[in-house]
Amino acid sequence: MQISEMVYGVLVQPVVTFRYLGQARPLGRTLGVWLLALTFSAVVSFSLIRGEMAALLPEVPAVQAPVMGNLFWLYGVGYLLLSLGWWLVVSALYGLLGELLGGVPNGTGVLTCLALAGLPGALGPALQLLSRAASVRFAEGPLLAGVFLWTAVLQVLALRESLQVDTGRAFVIWVAPFLVVGLMLLVGVLLLAALMFTVGLNL
């Protein structure tokens, strides 16, 4: 399967494509597609925050230009590393959860399918940029929600096909890390609030 076929399949015929990719596991080509999508996403999302970053710097072109150049590379590398870390960690976690819930052990398959299932995610910053450039910022919310939903559905399908579990279990596996992170955030916020309340009560 060529790269264009992989992309087309994920976007148009995800079930069949993920079933094939989960078995064939073309990790090298997947990594290529993933890197391309991520670079595109990093460039576009940097352009979204460029204004805010420039506002933090002195209004001197001789200072702004080199600093912004360095910031671009820093942002790009950070974006890439964080995404890579997230991809590896989440894939490992999904693989483990999948096995615990009766799925087949298929780490590389999960890694491959999950990377390609995240492809529509690159659309998020792109649509944000286009709606801002066209001065229709109100469209951002619905568009981002649509992209999130599409990506979520693809990821659940990717897990279902690569781990060979039913849709319900695939959904449970998919949602579990979000629940854990959400719970940790909630506990953190509650602790912080308790701390601020204790030290802030004075008159």
Partner: peptide, 21 residues
């Protein structure tokens, strides 16, 4: 084509300056 258009917009479009500027 979509990616090229978005990249051109990303490079050429300047976000509105913040209120302080």
């Amino acid at each position: 084509a979509f990616c090229l258009v978005v990249l051109v917009v990303a490079v050429r479009w300047s976000p509105p300056a913040s209120s302080s500027r």
